Amino acid sequence: MWDDAERLRKIEEAEKQGTERLLSYFPAWIRNILTENIDGVEEVAMDLGRPLVVRIRGEQILYREVSQGDIEYFYNKVGSFRSNGRAGIPGTLHRISVIRDADELAIGFTIRFGRAIPGIAAPLREWIGGRESTLIIGPPGVGKTTLLRGIVEEKAKTLKARLVIVDTSNEIAGDGTVPHPIIGSARRMMVGDPRKQANIIMQAITNHSPETIVVDEIGYHGDVEVLETARRRGVDIVATVHGEDLRDVLENPVLKPLLGYPDLETGKRLTRPTFQIGIAVLSKGVYKVYPNFTGAIDQALRKEDPEGITINTLTKAQP
């Protein structure tokens, strides 16, 4: 396997080539806009007859209207979309989603610029380096998947092939049959349809002897039951879930079995939670770690502020 210098070189090369290829999909006028601030571009929204919207470092900037020619140019470059309305670029972390009209014709796209950031999870090594199952909480677009990749990068250094990623829509390790080098020696099992995620998780557990399973966005049909099975078999879980904060997650009825069956009315839970560590993504690069996730759940059920440690990757830990 590559040494650290070679791995970083491969990540840098993959990022450069992937961004260049994605930029080539856009009409020239959009490509010129994106190139001016490419490092800060997070998302592009292209809708027929509507202003182009580019999100740069959290700020949305509007440009001229998108034409039919712009839509056709981009669609032809992408080529095809999966049944879930998504497409990717082999070897990259970028994600392209299509909007169609009543006749199934493409009339818009959402393009999310995915990036591998080596070392992003290094400030969290104290909490992610062991065998504890970890739940990452945050709203869409705040950086949950980016952090998840960073945790995979850290854990893969020791677990290697005993770390298995169940990669729905190729969100974690990128598109194409060969995963992005950010995941190191970890293995990846692809899931083309979210409805099949639970089945692939079970295949990973029963067929490939993982110590740790990594899943992005749990909550699909059957996920909870199969993840409970994983824990009973001694497999650790690292997963993400949507929610503004811990209380949002506790209010999600689908996730109750993984959180100890919390009852918001009585302020109690029935069983031990599946996860030992919780990490709330507050904003890009800012996290609140719950080292005692069970205790944090109990505090939230009592309507108290859960105890945690805020980690700002630009500064230092705050109690």
Rank of each mutant, 00 (worst) to 15 (best):
M1N: 13
D4C: 05
A5M: 09
L8D: 08
I11F: 04
G18C: 01
R21I: 12
S24G: 06
S24A: 10
S24C: 02
Y25G: 06
P27T: 01
W29Q: 12
L34R: 07
L34N: 11
G40D: 15
M46L: 15
M46G: 13
L48I: 09
L52K: 10
V54C: 06
L62I: 02
S67A: 01
G69P: 10
G85W: 07
A87R: 09
G88M: 11
P90E: 09
G91W: 02
T110A: 14
F113A: 05
G114F: 00
P118N: 07
P118E: 02
G129L: 00
E132N: 12
I136T: 09
I137A: 05
T146S: 12
T146R: 05
R149S: 05
E153P: 04
K155L: 14
A156K: 11
A156D: 10
I165W: 02
N170L: 02
N170H: 11
N170V: 01
E171D: 12
G184A: 13
M190T: 07
D193F: 08
D193S: 14
P210C: 03
V214T: 04
V214G: 10
V214R: 08
V215K: 01
E217G: 13
I218C: 13
Y220N: 15
H221K: 15
D223I: 04
T229H: 12
R232T: 13
G234H: 08
V241I: 09
N252R: 13
K256G: 04
P257C: 01
G260T: 00
P262V: 01
L264I: 12
E265A: 03
R272F: 00
P273R: 07
T274G: 05
G278M: 03
G278C: 02
A280W: 03
V281W: 01
V281N: 10
S283N: 15
T294R: 14
E304P: 09
D305L: 09
D305I: 10
E307Y: 02
E307A: 14
N312M: 12
Q318L: 13
